[in-house]
Amino acid sequence: MNLPLPHEMYLLCYDVEKGRIESSSALVRGQLVRAAAVADLALAGWFRDEAGKAARTSTETPDDPFLAEVLDHVSPDRPRRWFTVVDHSWHTAEATMRDLLAATGVITADRRRALGLFPVHDIALPDPERVRLLQGRVRDAVLGGHDPAGIAIEDAVLATFALQGDVRTAFSPKERRAHRDVVRSLADRVDSDLPGLRKALDYSIAARRAGATS
Rank of each mutant, 00 (worst) to 15 (best):
I21C: 14
D122F: 00
A103W: 05
S185Y: 01
K53R: 15
Y14T: 10
A212N: 14
A207S: 12
A162C: 13
D147E: 09
M9V: 01
L67H: 12
D49I: 02
N2S: 11
A93I: 09
D202F: 08
S75P: 09
L67K: 12
D64A: 04
R98M: 13
A102T: 13
S172A: 10
R209A: 08
P126T: 00
E22L: 11
H179I: 08
T92Y: 01
L133W: 03
P65H: 11
L133Y: 09
E175D: 11
V16Y: 03
H88P: 02
P79S: 08
G19V: 04
G52I: 11
Q31I: 01
V157E: 08
S204D: 12
P62M: 02
H73Y: 10
A26Y: 02
P126D: 11
P65Y: 07
R113M: 15
S214I: 02
H88Q: 10
V142F: 03
R189G: 08
G165N: 10
V33M: 11
I151W: 00
V38P: 15
K53E: 14
V16M: 02
L41Q: 04
K53Y: 07
G116D: 05
E175G: 01
G144A: 09
R78H: 06
K53S: 13
S192I: 00
D193M: 08
F47Y: 13
R81C: 08
A51L: 15
R78D: 01
L41K: 07
A114I: 04
L158A: 06
V190I: 00
T59W: 02
L186P: 03
R130Q: 15
D99Q: 09
F47T: 00
G19C: 07
W46A: 06
Y10D: 00
L11M: 02
S25C: 10
P119E: 03
E60Y: 09
A102P: 15
D140L: 04
A210D: 12
Y203L: 06
A37N: 12
H121N: 11
P119L: 03
A124V: 02
A36W: 08
G30P: 08
H7I: 06
D64G: 10
H88E: 12
D140Q: 07
I107P: 13
W90E: 04
I153H: 10
L117S: 06
T92A: 12
G52M: 01
I205P: 05
R78Y: 06
F83Y: 15
A149R: 14
A102G: 04
S25A: 11
G145E: 05
Y10F: 15
L186H: 03
P65N: 07
N2P: 15
V16E: 01
L163K: 13
S214Q: 13
L67W: 06
Q31P: 00
L3G: 00
Y203V: 02
A26V: 05
R111Q: 15
A44M: 00
R130F: 04
V33E: 14
G150M: 14
G211I: 05
A149T: 09
R130L: 06
G19N: 11
D110G: 03
D202S: 14
R98D: 05
R48A: 12
A206G: 04
H73I: 00
A26Q: 08
D181E: 14
M9C: 01
S185R: 15
Q31M: 03
P6L: 13
D72P: 06
D147C: 14
W46Q: 15
A103Y: 11
E8K: 10
M9N: 04
P173F: 12
A35E: 10
G136H: 03
A187V: 01
L41S: 01
